[in-house]
Simulated scan of single mutants.
Amino acid sequence: MNATMKHAPDDENEVHDVLTFTDPGNCVVTPVTQFPPEIALAVTDSLRGLVQDAHRSEAATKPDADGITRAQTFEEGDVYMLAAPYEAYEADRYLMDFYDVVDRDICSRMHLHTGLRFVRMMTGPDTRIRVSSLAPIRITDVPGVTRFVPETFEDDHPDVPEGHRRTRYNLVIPPNSWADMQVPRGVSHQFNAHGPHAVIDSVHPEESIETFRERMTGFKMMAQTIFLAEEQPASESCALS
């Protein structure tokens, strides 16, 4: 797994063929805990506010001395890098303020990353997160410890050529909940938030290693993403009942 994964290292919208793609592993979701609605709202709104403050900050919206722009925008939402990597520490950490896919009528695309990820998903009242992959998602369940079990279901992945089928594996993080997700390098995944109070707290343990491994010319977070669809689909493709 030391070979590069990208055809064009600096491309921020590289798309690989979904029909020939094979997941090298599986994502693992660990339900953590659930909160009363008022506590969940306070946590998610506070973190979302931090992200939006960053996007209004002149310092956070332009490259710093290391060439890193901390406030960025991804398909799923606005992002703020809380902790940047440096020479002696390859990891970084960022917060994402999710878009409400119903409000925007658009879903994020299935994608993979050139390095592994650790993600904590947090929801507030009237908000759920749909998590999807082209490989079955394993759920940690420790009797006497695990606080809840996410709903799971399968459907046909919508972003495939006509006449072909691929199974999409899904789970739903319920309102007022925290759940962790381990995403191995190169494993497909997709996040879509239904509701206004959703946040991701994500750690990238090999962020600067990826830059060298993929032979990028600079530190570009979106260039560490590879998509499995040409365009973002309408919200019906990631709907929840």
Rank of each mutant, 00 (worst) to 15 (best):
I200L: 10
I129Q: 06
H197V: 01
E12V: 13
M221N: 02
P158N: 13
P175R: 03
M1P: 02
D10R: 05
V187E: 02
R138L: 15
F212E: 12
G218M: 05
V51E: 01
K6E: 00
H55C: 02
F35A: 07
P136H: 04
Y89I: 08
V51G: 02
H194L: 14
T167L: 02
P175N: 08
D180F: 11
I200K: 06
T140V: 14
G124K: 00
R48Q: 06
R104P: 13
W178A: 12
R166F: 02
A179Q: 05
H111K: 09
M222G: 01
H55R: 13
E162W: 12
V101K: 11
L171N: 04
M221C: 08
V43A: 12
G218K: 01
P196R: 09
D78I: 02
S108A: 12
P143K: 11
F227K: 04
T69G: 00
D10L: 00
I129S: 02
D103T: 15
V101C: 09
N2Y: 10
P36N: 14
T20Q: 06
L19R: 10
F191Q: 07
T69M: 06
S132Y: 07
P205G: 03
I39D: 13
E207V: 10
E154C: 12
V172A: 13
S208I: 13
H164T: 14
I106N: 14
Q34R: 15
T30N: 05
A8V: 15
H111W: 05
A83V: 13
V79E: 08
D92T: 04
R117P: 03
V183F: 01
E87S: 10
V199A: 03
P36F: 08
R120C: 04
L47F: 05
P9A: 08
A198L: 08
F21L: 03
K6N: 00
A54M: 06
A229Y: 03
E76Q: 10
T69E: 02
T225E: 09
I129L: 15
V203T: 07
P161G: 08
P143H: 14
F153K: 11
T127A: 08
E87F: 15
E58R: 09
P143E: 15
T123L: 08
D64K: 00
E214I: 04
A88K: 13
T61Y: 05
Q182F: 11
T167I: 07
R56K: 15
